[in-house]
Write a protein that binds this DNA or RNA. Sequence first.
DNA 1: AAGTACTCCAACCGCGACGGA
DNA 2: TTCCGTCGCGGTTGGAGTACT
Length: 259
Amino acid sequence: MVRAPCFDKHGMKKGAWSQDEDNKLRAYIETCGHSNWRKLPKLAGLSRCGKSCRLRWMNYLHPNVKHGKFTKDEEDVVVALHNKLGNKWSMIAARLPGRSDNEIKNYWHTHLKNRAPKDQTVLQTEQDGNVEPSKGKAKAGCVVRKPSLKSQQEVDILLTESSSSSSSSSSSYYSTISDPNESSPSSLSVSDANVTPKCSDEVAGSLWIDQFLWDKDHSIMLSSDKMFSPLGVGADDFIFSEDNAMDDVLLWSNLDLYY
DNA sequence: AAGTACTCCAACCGCGACGGA
DNA sequence: TTCCGTCGCGGTTGGAGTACT
């Protein structure tokens, strides 16, 4: 199911990864980290481009990546978020612990696309006015958004609004997060967090760090990664398990409140 | 059993964003 | 301000596996 290994004109290997390559990459990142993806393959003794190494790590080798079928709850979250965010797979992935953007994207196209509202494309076009028609070989119904900070801000605002006022079927996603050691919920809206939503990643990033510190105080294993992604959290040790998947989805989805 | 069509997902590609010189 | 290197995102492709005829 994977591309056959081959070498490009620069001698870089392409195609499927071997077990040996996986081991090398994993061993290197676990000991030295990945501060520079471009230099990493050479240092790790791999004949791959940095991009390929990054992709392999993010989508497959990262210890917090969960493999296997999506649960019904995960499906629902993906559908709900896609309705709101469109093809912002990285943002959707940020709310689904252990799932990479690539995996979610694939799953969407193979399983969930037909569950989306039929007029979604029209809806999005009307809502944000920032949608370009599909180009090239894009499949029918695929929305191509022009990436821009402006649209990002609009998405953030949209999220904030829906999280504070939504009473839709997905409203349960926005219930509060509680610190087990405190009686009052520690959830934040943009206003009560006294945060200006000028840049969601920046804002969310700092709040994630806060969340991490909170977690650490409660002896929850954390990854050394500081990236803004659920993959940066030791999801297996933290909140995700097959048994309490829905609670976990709720908790992670609550991070919408931080935008 | 063999050929064909379809499904699914790992991996590739191109482009824009970002940060440093 | 511009240039350049790097990173990350989203769209697309390749091809093994499976279902169907």
